[in-house]
Nucleic acid binder design. Structure first.
Lengths: 152, 152
DNA sequence: CGTAACTTTCAATAATTACTGAAACATCAA
DNA sequence: TTGATGTTTCAGTAATTATTGAAAGTTACG
C-alpha cells in the first residue's frame, strides 16, 4: 500500500468524520472502495489502514449494522470477507433523510416550550418546522427517482 | 431559565453535534430560537447556556460567519445583540448541498487511484460518483422551490 | 474431544476536542 | 484622556472520543 493510497484513505476518513461518522469507519470504507478485487478480510483491512484488529472489528460491525458493508464467508474457511453493499450510498442518504424528522420535532418541541403569542418570537421555530417538514416530504421523492433510474 | 428549558438546549446542542457542528453552537442557536423577544446579548447567552464568555464569543462568531445568526447593535449602546437570521435553515441546507461535491470528487479520485479495468472493482466508486452527481443536481432544485414558495 | 486460526470484547490509555478564565483589546461618554 | 462597560483571544485544563492490545470467545477440522 503506497503513500498516495494512504493519503486517500486518510482523507476518505476525514470526509466521513466531518459528516458525522467516525474517521475509522471512513478509512475502512475507503479501503473497501479502492480494493481490487473489491473485498478484504479483517486482517487485510487492519494492515491497509494501519489499525489494530480491535478497531477493525468495531468498524466493520458498525458498517454492517448500518447496511453499508456486507460480511460473508466461504464455507470451510474461517476467515470472513467484507465488501461494500450495492446501494450503500443510497442507504447513507436514506439515513440522513430519516434524521430530518429529529429537526422538525425539535422545532415543534420548541414551539410548545416557548408558549408565547408573540409572532416575532415564534417565527424562527415555525420556519424551522416548515422547512424540515418540506424536506421530509421531498427527499424520499428524489431517493425513489434514483432507484427507478438505477433499475434501468 | 427552568429545568425543562435547559434540557431542551442540551438536546438542541446534541442534535447539532451528531450532525457535524459543535454542541456549543447548537446550544447557543437553541437559546436564540426559544427566546422571547427573539434576541439576546452575549451576557444573556452566557447565562442561559451556562458557559463562559469566551465560549459564547467563539460560538457567536462561528454562527455569524456561517450566515446563521445576525449581530447588531443599537447606536449609543455598547452591547451587541444576536438573533437568528431569517432563512437560517435554508442556509444550513445549502451548506450541506455544497458538501456533496466533496463526495463526488472523492469518488473520482478513487477511480483514478484504482486504475483498474476490472468492472467489479470499479462499480462501487462509479455508483458513488453517479449518486452524488445526481444529488448535486437535485438539491438546488428543491432548495429553489422552497425559496419560491416562501416568497408568496 | 484438542488445537490452530481467526474474531470479539473491553479496560487502559492515547489523541482530540471543548471549555474556561484572565489578560488584552475595543468602544462609549464625560 | 480616563474610567466604565463590554468583547475577544488564547494558553491551560477538562471532558470526550478513538484506539490499542491482551484475554476470552468462536469455528473448522483432524
Amino acid at each position: 500500500m503506497d503513500e498516495e493510497r494512504h493519503r486517500y484513505l486518510e482523507e476518505f476518513g476525514l470526509l466521513f468524520g466531518q459528516f458525522g461518522l467516525s474517521r475509522m469507519l471512513g478509512r475502512v470504507l475507503g479501503v473497501l472502495m479502492v480494493s481490487d478485487p473489491p473485498e478484504r478480510t479483517a486482517e487485510e483491512l487492519a494492515e491497509d489502514v494501519g489499525a489494530s484488529r480491535g478497531s477493525i472489528s468495531s468498524a466493520t460491525r458498525s458498517l454492517v449494522q448500518m447496511g453499508i458493508v456486507q460480511r460473508w464467508s466461504r464455507p470451510g474457511e474461517r476467515r470472513d470477507h467484507f465488501r461494500v453493499r450495492p446501494g450503500a450510498w443510497h442507504e447513507i442518504m436514506r439515513r440522513e433523510a430519516a434524521a430530518l424528522r429529529n429537526f422538525r420535532e425539535m422545532a415543534e418541541r420548541g414551539l410548545d416550550l416557548l408558549n408565547s403569542q408573540n409572532p416575532d418570537a415564534r417565527r424562527n421555530l415555525e420556519e424551522m418546522r416548515d422547512f424540515y417538514a418540506y424536506w421530509e416530504k421531498e427527499m424520499p421523492v428524489i431517493l425513489e427517482r434514483w432507484e427507478r433510474e438505477e433499475e434501468r
